[in-house]
């Protein structure tokens, strides 16, 4: 992140009560993840001990301390999706991408994540890639969908929930 963007965020939240989490959220939105350096600057800028900044950044699952893959795959492991076989779809994705959930692929093209309920239980088991939903996923269908995002641009592929 350009230092000026970070300085701006820090200026905006300095001295305001309860501002650490929004400051971290904004900083992460700017650069995709929170590096040690960013955390240090926020700590100094907001006058909050580094240990507390680090504690908060590691407590919440939304904060990432390392670089992320370009396309985020969110596999719903909510209850409705679980009873309809989300586990098998997740396992297939992990095998295809060669990473465990919570990690980026080696080429940084994908970020594999799990979430608890996407709010689309009627699509169970559901996955979401970037902003697109794909319903009724099985180990067989997930592979096809991945292909749309390999080699293409950010908006490769339109959602086709029938697949």
């Amino acid at each position: 992140m350009s230092t000026s963007a970070l300085t701006e965020i820090i200026e905006r939240y300095r001295g305001k009560p309860g501002s650490l989490i929004p400051a971290l959220q904004k900083a992460q939105a700017e650069m995709g993840y929170l590096s040690g350096e960013t955390l240090e600057q926020i700590s100094t800028g907001l006058g909050i001990p580094f240990s507390r900044v680090f504690g908060v950044a590691t407590f919440y699952s939304q904060f990432y301390l390392s670089p992320r893959g370009k396309h985020t795959i969110k596999v719903c492991v909510g209850t409705a999706c679980h009873v309809r076989g989300a586990g098998a779809a997740l396992q297939a994705l992990e095998e295809k991408l060669g990473v465990k959930a919570g990690n980026p692929t080696e080429d940084l093209n994908f970020q594999l994540e799990t979430v608890a309920c996407l709010g689309t239980c009627f699509l169970a088991p559901a996955i979401m890639i970037d902003k697109d939903y794909y319903g009724e996923q099985t180990p067989k269908t997930v592979g096809k969908i991945l292909k749309k995002y390999i080699g293409g641009g950010a908006d490769a592929g339109t959602p086709d929930p029938e697949e």
Partner: peptide, 26 residues
């Protein structure tokens, strides 16, 4: 409006307040 940051326990009221105050949501 305060956006949560992804922790189930923050639905619990005292954890929720800690989170609004910008702390770990315990």
């Amino acid at each position: 409006i305060k956006e949560g940051a992804g922790a189930f326990v923050c639905g619990e009221e005292t954890a929720l307040m800690a989170s609004i105050e910008g702390k770990r949501g315990t």
